[in-house]
Design a protein around this nucleic acid. Structure first.
Lengths: 216, 216, 216, 216
DNA sequence: AATGAATGAGGGTTCATTCAT
DNA sequence: CATGAATGAACCCTCATTCAT
């Protein structure tokens, strides 16, 4: 379940407060600049620790970045604990999923930006080092959810479960990018207009209508 | 309709062959490494021209990158000329759209990777310099297509056109990323399985079923 | 009397108009940027000739620069033809000298800036290539002028002619720098105040009072 | 009184010895080559430090240069502490001034060469960054000295104080350039002859005679 | 004679990482 | 354990000069 560890032992021994600063600063920098344009020395400065310390916590820039990515997955996992895939109808579950995704994108915008960066071809050597990641970790949850809904007759009998799961995840991913990245944010405004694009309820309602129709 | 020009006059004066090498090499490098990790000198070397020449064709690394991105849009526009939004039913048009997107992602994988990189927060200063881009240029085409389908009664009367257009574009974008980026390629395999993920007809059929149900 | 020639034969064969543009542009660039920061290609562009042509007129950047410097000496020599060292009293001659220097600094500011640059240690390899130059060419004129004035009893009998000549030239040189270089221009304003510093008559009168007292 | 600081904090923390090497090497290079022709990497090499270190001491080539210029002003200020403008007659003070200028030009030839470079039009963007500089900082000292001499009746009653101050500074400036720059050094020899030009006492006596006559 | 594309050494600057204190 | 000065390869870009057309 847990990944290889990307931080050194020393990092576990420092104060929670210090850890937080490092996380906050590093995530903000990586999210804003992208992995390659981020300067490790700047992170140390902004976090008010020495570069030496930073290197005593993390083996390399790569590891620091991956530790941040991992932290994001952790937070997402925690958020998805509220999903309760067994409670209510599939569509109630999916609506909860979209709400959680929305919350996450708003609260943890920087993590979403980091995932977008990670999905980039140039960083494949980094994403490969992550055994688990957002997109892949929910394959089974989604599939199970849809398969059980199919068994219960909540969705149509001939639903292509793998494709439906893939489709569902696509909606989640695009939703998060649309909320987190400047680029996609301007795109969603172009499609939905300024007001609609900021109306969370309406967006979720719109997406739910699509999901219901295509799954029923 | 046309963007600001990102190449210098000199670039128009060299042989078509030389231009091609520069394009091919630069696109491959940017796609594989990402903007920031790409080395201008390496591009020059691989293209067998001097750095000085490269800089006599393009003002800066930024401009070279944007010129490549623009070239990609051009090719996409050309490909989309085959869409013929007025011919056949909406669903026939959409199926053509998916096929074109598929073709493009297969033939011009590198361009898709470049767009993914461009959508990254760290490169927003670059994407802002592009007045036109893949995602934004088809807003009106999609909306018009769906509005006219609505008028013709091909889709349901209460279809939320902006959301449907956004949704359609999301499918296209995710399809292209899924085919082009290593990261998303492994994700699609996880969802659909090795065989399904390589079966173009089946994927398009699966997506079309979703689209038809949600629009009808 | 004449220096080594710094331009190639070809330069003599082109139209007077073209020669003028080259001179005007090159002088302006060298004066504004300094020798080292000046870009030969920029000069060619601004003069609307090709770099190839420029190099067919002048062997190198060095030669182009020296040709410009030489042109300046030529103009100064022409201006000093109006000095008429034999006409009137020494002080009348010196007042004419100051007026000529003033005129030259105003009309040929760029040349004055070039001489300042040339006097710089880093360009000593260039100034050495000039057999004749502004500062040195008038040594004899000044000395002769003062010696004859001494003989005529216009100046005091114990006048130290070499020192007086040196002193006179210092006044001319500082006057020209004070008028031509931004740096010295702000310095003269600091000493004399805005109004005085722009009042040619008053400055010359002030200097003449000094000269008369020290020579008489 | 003090300028903006042109070095980084790190520079203050290194050994005095290291600071000295950097100063010595940088000053020698800038003086000999001029700002534009000086190579930062060469300075680092000659000072036996890494380029990285040099850039941890100074933000840029510009700052390194200005830090050197500032150091020169500091030394000049220190030297001029020996002027004692209140002690003795004006002419005694002025004679001390000329001696200090002579000493400075001999001991700190490189600084004089740097000032000459700085006064160049092409480096006006640098001289503008210096709030204080040799030429401007003594305006008030000179004017006060002459005004008080006028009050005391040591100089003639109708002395044009601003012009006299300007004239005095011109003598100092030209003296320093004449001693420091190869170009002006050969010029002074042309005027005064080899022997005279190297006879400090005689030069100062000659200049003092001029000053006394013109001020009395 | 004129053109201007091509060259590539060289220059200023950055930054991940090391290591002595 | 913490510090931050030190390192130097690497990067983007410039420009004097050449030479094929």
């Amino acid at each position: 379940m847990s990944n290889t560890v990307f931080y050194k032992d020393t990092f576990t021994k420092i104060s929670e407060e210090k850890k937080d600063i490092v996380f906050t600063v590093a995530i903000a920098e990586f999210a804003a600049m992208g992995y390659n344009a981020t300067n490790i020395n700047t992170i140390a400065q902004k976090a008010k620790i020495s570069i030496g310390s930073l290197y005593s916590y993390f083996e390399s820039k790569e590891d620091l970045f991956l530790a941040m990515a991992e932290k994001g997955y952790e937070l997402l996992n925690r958020a998805l604990e509220e999903l309760h895939p067994e409670e209510g109808t599939v569509f109630e579950v999916i609506e909860r999923l979209l709400n959680i995704a929305f919350d996450y994108a708003e609260k943890h915008t920087d993590f979403c930006r980091i995932y977008l960066d990670l999905s980039t071809e140039g960083l494949s050597h980094l994403s490969e080092r992550l055994t688990e990641n957002v997109e892949t970790s929910y394959v089974h949850v989604y599939k199970k959810l849809l398969a059980s809904a199919k068994a219960k007759g909540e969705v149509r009998a001939d639903l292509d479960v793998p494709m439906a799961a893939f489709f569902l995840d696509n909606i989640v991913v695009m939703l998060q990018f649309s909320l987190a990245s400047s680029y996609y944010r301007s795109r969603i405004k172009l499609y939905l207009g300024e007001d609609y694009a900021q109306d969370r309820k309406r967006i979720i309602a719109g997406l739910m209508r699509i999901v219901k129709r295509s799954f029923s």
